[in-house]
Structures are given as C-alpha cells and as structure tokens.
Design a protein around this nucleic acid. Sequence first.
DNA 1: AATCAGCTCAACCGCAGGTTG
DNA 2: GCAACCTGCGGTTGAGCTGAT
Length: 238
Amino acid sequence: MKNVQEEYRKGPWTEQEDILLVNFVHTFGDRRWDFVAKVSGLNRTGKSCRLRWVNYLHPGLKRGKMTPQEERHVLELHAKWGNRWSKIAKKLPGRTDNEIKNYWRTHMRKQAQEKKRPMSPTSSSSNCCSSSMTTATTQDTGGSNGKMNQECDDGNYSMDDIWREIDQSGANIIKPVKDIYYSEQSCYLNFPPLSPTWESSLESIWNMGADESKMSSFAIDQFPLSFEHDTSAWSCLV
DNA sequence: AATCAGCTCAACCGCAGGTTG
DNA sequence: GCAACCTGCGGTTGAGCTGAT
C-alpha cells in the first residue's frame, strides 16, 4: 500500500506539472483521473489532478471577475437550488463551482457585514450600496479589487501563458482552446491529427486494460518531458 | 516604510453516489 | 448482492495580495 502522506505531492501546482497534466488530459480525456495521475508521473492524487484541471487548466474557463449578468444569474440560481454549486456552474459557461462558491461566500460575508451595520454613513465606498442583492454585488465585486483582472491581463503565470508557450514550440503538443468544443453538460476534446501509430496505440491501450508499466513507458515515449528547471523556457517540448 | 486587516482564490478534506469486478 | 474503487460535490482552510492606517 502506498503511504499517501509520504508520497503524494500537495500544495500549489508548478508550471511543469500543469503542462504535463494538460498533455495527458488531452491525450486520455478528462476521465480516469487516478489513471492519468499515475501514468503521468505526477506525484498527485487523481483527485488533485481533476481539481486542477476543472478549476484552473480547463480551456473553456473564463478568467476574471463575474459580470453583473453572471452575478445576477448566480443569485437567481442560488435562490432556486441553494448550495448546488456544480449545478449552478453548469448554467454559467466558463465558471467553476469553486469559483461560484467562493464568490457566494464573499457575497454572503459582505451581506452579513452590511446587516451588522445597516445604513452606516461612514461605510467606505465599497459598501455604498443598498440592500438590493444585485446592485450590491455588482458594485462591490467590481469596485474593490482588480486583482483578478490584473492577473488576467499581465499576471505572473496564467493558462494563456502555457498555451502560448505550447503554441510557440510549434510542435507535436496537442493544441488547446480552439480545438476543444464544449456543450453545456460536457466537454469534447478534439484531438489533433494523430499518427496512425499513435492512434492505434491509444486504442490498444484502452483496450488492454491499461497496464500501467506499459503505459508509463508509452507516456515517456510520447512526452519526453524534461523537468530540468529552466527559467527561460520550458524544456519539456519535443 | 512597516504593520495590520480584509479579501480572493487555489487547494485540500470528507463524504456520497456511481461504477466495476 | 456485495465490496472495492473512482469520481464528483460541497465545505473549509490557508497563503498571498491589496488597501488602509
């Protein structure tokens, strides 16, 4: 048995891990997370991989603040369904349950604060709103903090950066966003053209019950990633 | 300039439901 | 029918950032 505490990595994901995960998800799909976790060599649990993909790496995600429309939508849907975050998220393309949950928490906290000190004339400008939920959230979230937008525009390291790096490499790496199509309920990965050997490999892999040792070497062949920490560029590209 | 408080968001945890053998 | 395993969901936490003092 594997000692989970000792062997699995926790905490923030590195760029290399992200790239590796993106590659493997594009290859094997966003299912079978335990398998992806093992085969990729990431020392992460399948759960952790899934979460990273769903909440951050997924190409369909919108980054940045919620629009007033989205905020209103969240409020409406929450009134209807309660804390069914994933259900609500499905109605808001590009938003994750985690994001909505976080938004709601912030929103509720602000509400609670405003209830504590109703009509306080000394409230800062960020608390200037009426008790109307919609207007309150709209102004609050829009006004107080531009962090997310900054990160989006010129932030340290975003998915855009990853895609750009991958794109610039030119190469055999699977292409992101534009080749991936989503429906409301699910995500279809449209793989780039695969070589016949690659295709048959994939097929046989799924059919053979995914012998892990075979898979590992297969993976290494297909993604000869180097994890040398190179600050100038990722040296993982073929 | 330093410190503090509040906020945001990524990530973890535990649990429940679904799937597979 | 049952146990083991996997996936997804909702709740919670903590690090890092920002603005106020």
